[in-house]
Design a protein around this nucleic acid. Structure first.
Length: 712
DNA sequence: GTGGATGAG
DNA sequence: CGCTCATCCAC
């Protein structure tokens, strides 16, 4: 009763009337689909790994402190992370420093690293908290640790395309373990490899030859009376067990190699895995078997479910007068739809029943980066604002260097400046001139121009906050291989297609409608993929969702994901010392767009920024061909990348390769700078019906809130 | 394409 | 609370 997976056939439930069944509830088809991680497969195995009190752990590790030492990470006068030893003293975020000291006299306070005005790099300053006026917080140390951890996690898993890893935030990673579990299943239970009776894939599998499973140290979600442990294990239990073994080994790798502990949840989808990861902490993992889902959910507040924690959740709560999942179960799907919109309604309906068809997107590349500061007290002069812009630019530029701007791997297309005054915020953005080298001077001039635009509207002081961001990254290949550079209408069409069919398409739909996909093909890409298949020996079955797509498109999700940048990628040291401000800056309007696109302003300011310096000389683990830093375990993939580039260069007719696909073939490396988190609503969603994405992509109803939420 | 809002950590 | 990041919506 507790399981209602979409594709179970009626015969799957045949029983002899007792608790013992001779056959599994799952079919040969379910098993086969596991290898491609079909999002509707009831055997799908997903995990979320969440670092324990991440920032605090980073500091404990960095400082070499004993793990049981209570520690809090401080940001100005607040605490942004409290480690578990400190939580035993009743500490939590949102308490002030004096209280914390009182509750836990031995608490170690560590302020976050900061950029100090005029410095060319962030550092740990022991007087940072007293200098809020001249320092700006840097989360770089945590991004770098996050990156290392992600590298270890990837290294502990099989290569893509079996490996599917999605960085959900700076301290959280989703894993889709389905394909790996499938492989282990076949090894461990060879009888599953036999052809189905009558060669009919809809036949049910035999039951697992086991009656008791060893869950080791896992926490298990309890069952209710109706779902007793009496029922023999079926394959959905076995896949969770295997998934849990994998997760335990991944956690051990992180622990052994980097000294970080984490908690994890293992379940049939992202929503449940996320919920489960928080069930027992720290340093524990929790499994939600399908038979436990009902009980697990009914006693929790739905506002704890990913994406229901905000306004949508509030809206639902106030509409139905409850925050409990259990009390919403009687609400019909139609009722939900009528209250919160069709798409959102059915998506929420499924979620409340433990169904979440969102996929784990192998993605680790960031799409934008931002540097910001809120001013307390507010600032009142253009001159002050410019000083902060310098720091923002230095910060962002150093992160861009990690992204490979200097090597022409990726570059942002737009720059954006936000300005806050009291409650309201204003922003302006500008394209980053393509074809010009991105350097600090250019970014600073662009930022200054945006500031001028905002200030020109008047009424802008005092200013309570500024944030500078860059985004719209485009993928470039080193050497500027023609095929990879797509410009003009074709690129625009492609981008438009991606937006329409992907992100904003239907609300809770992760799949892109096949009909809207461009058929993009390239001999080089296919050869690359083929070689990859051969060398890695991975399956390439088309999942139902991908039918009708060209081979290249179909396979791309697999290759697509690894993002790569050398894990170690030390940020190249760039001399970004900034000369003192000159005072010509007070002319708010001296900077015009024309001058931006032509040449850098020649005023004292522009000239005062030192030109970027070439990347630091190579150290260990460098690729002999491109000198990129590559971790040992990344070497193979990196080599693949060169191979693809070479092929591409040989192929003549690759000019129609859209830039997007190009991005899928990137040098291997580590991950991108991983900042933050977020599960958001977003994009991808899978239609709530789980089936073909074509459905429900209609316009959102008026007044209905974002339909956008979904699983991300 | 731009500016604002929502959501998560 | 402050600082990020991602996505979506309305215009």
């Amino acid at each position: 009763m507790s399981q209602q997976f979409v594709s179970s056939s009626p015969t799957a439930l045949e029983t002899d009337g007792s608790l013992r069944r001779r056959k599994s509830r799952f079919t040969y088809k379910h098993l086969t689909q596991l290898s491609v991680s079909s999002t509707t497969n009831p055997l799908r195995t997903i995990a979320l790994i969440d670092l324990d009190a991440f920032y605090a752990q980073c500091e404990t590790v960095r400082l070499g402190l004993p793990e049981d030492k209570p520690l809090a990470v401080q940001q100005w006068q607040g605490l942004i992370a409290i480690n578990y030893p400190a939580r035993k003293f009743g500490l939590s975020r949102h308490i002030d420093i004096a209280e914390a000291k009182k509750l836990c006299p031995e608490l170690h306070f560590q302020h976050v690293a900061t950029w100090r005005e005029g410095d060319d790099k962030w550092a740990y300053h022991d007087d940072a908290a007293q200098n809020i006026g001249t320092h700006k917080v840097s989360l770089d140390p945590y991004r770098m640790e996050s990156r290392k951890i992600l590298a270890v996690i990837k290294d502990a898993l099989p290569p893509a395309p079996v490996q599917r890893v999605e960085k959900a935030s700076i301290d959280e990673v989703f894993l889709d373990l389905s394909a790996q579990v499938h492989g282990i299943l076949l090894e461990r239970y060879p009888e599953l490899g036999l052809p189905p009776p009558y060669d009919d894939p809809t036949e049910n599998l035999p039951l697992p030859p086991t009656t008791a499973l060893d869950w080791d140290t896992d926490a298990l979600i309890d069952l209710d009376e109706a779902e007793s442990e009496e029922r023999d294990p079926d394959w959905d239990d076995i896949v969770m067990l295997i998934g849990s073994e994998i997760v335990r080994s991944v956690r051990a790798a992180v622990r052994d190699r980097l000294k970080y502990t984490c908690s994890a949840g293992i379940a049939r989808n992202k929503m449940l895995a996320k919920l489960a990861s928080g069930y027992k902490k720290p340093n524990q993992q929790t499994v939600v078997r399908t038979r436990a889902v009902e009980k697990f959910l009914e006693d929790i507040k739905f506002t704890k479910i990913r994406n229901l924690g905000g306004k949508l959740g509030d809206q639902v709560a106030s509409t139905f007068g409850t925050e409990m999942v259990k009390e919403l179960l009687p609400i019909s799907k139609e009722q939900l739809k009528s209250k919160i919109g069709d798409d959102t309604g059915s998506w929420v309906y499924e979620l409340l029943r433990g169904e979440d068809y969102s996929e784990v997107n192998s993605r680790t590349q960031i799409k934008s980066m931002l540097s910001a500061k809120s001013f307390r007290p507010s600032i009142n002069t253009f001159d002050q604002a410019l000083r902060w812009l310098r720091i923002f630019v230095a910060d962002i530029f150093s992160r861009l260097v990690e992204e490979g701007v200097l090597e022409h791997k990726r570059r942002p297309r737009t720059i954006n400046l936000h300005h806050r005054q009291g409650g309201q915020t204003k922003s302006r953005q500008a394209p980053i001139p393509s074809g010009k080298t991105v350097d600090e001077t250019m970014l600073f001039e662009l930022a200054k121009n945006l500031l001028n635009q905002i200030l020109s509207e008047g009424n802008t002081w005092p200013c309570a906050g500024l944030q500078l961001s860059v985004g719209g990254f485009e993928e470039l290949m080193s050497g500027n291989i023609g095929a990879f550079v797509v410009r003009g209408t074709e690129a625009k069409a492609m981008n438009a297609t991606m937006r329409d069919s992907g992100n904003r398409s239907s609300m809770h739909t992760e799949e892109r409608p096949a009909t809207k996909r461009r058929r993009v093909d390239s001999g080089g890409i296919q050869k690359f993929l083929q070689r990859r298949e051969e060398s890695k020996g991975e399956h390439s079955d088309a999942s139902p969702e991908t039918e009708g797509l060209s081979p290249a498109t179909m396979a791309s999700p697999n290759v697509n994901t690894p993002q790569h940048r050398p894990a170690q990628s030390h940020r190249h040291d760039v001399d970004r010392s900034i000369a003192p401000l000159t005072h010509d800056d007070s002319d708010l309007h001296y900077m015009h767009k024309e001058s931006l696109t032509e040449e850098p302003s020649s005023d004292g300011l522009g000239a005062s920024v030192d030109p970027p310096v070439a990347p630091k000389s190579p150290s260990n683990n460098q690729c002999p061909r491109c000198h990129k830093h590559v971790l040992p375990f990344e070497a193979e993939e990196h080599e693949d990348w060169h191979f693809a580039v070479d092929l591409q260069a040989e192929e003549e007719g690759s000019a129609n390769l859209p830039s997007h696909n190009v991005s899928s073939i990137r040098p291997t490396t580590s991950m991108q700078p991983l900042p933050s988190h977020s599960h958001r609503g977003g994009s991808s969603k899978k239609s709530s019906s789980g089936e073909k994405a074509g459905r429900g992509r209609g316009k959102v109803e008026k007044g209905q809130q974002r339909l956008a939420f979904g699983p991300s």
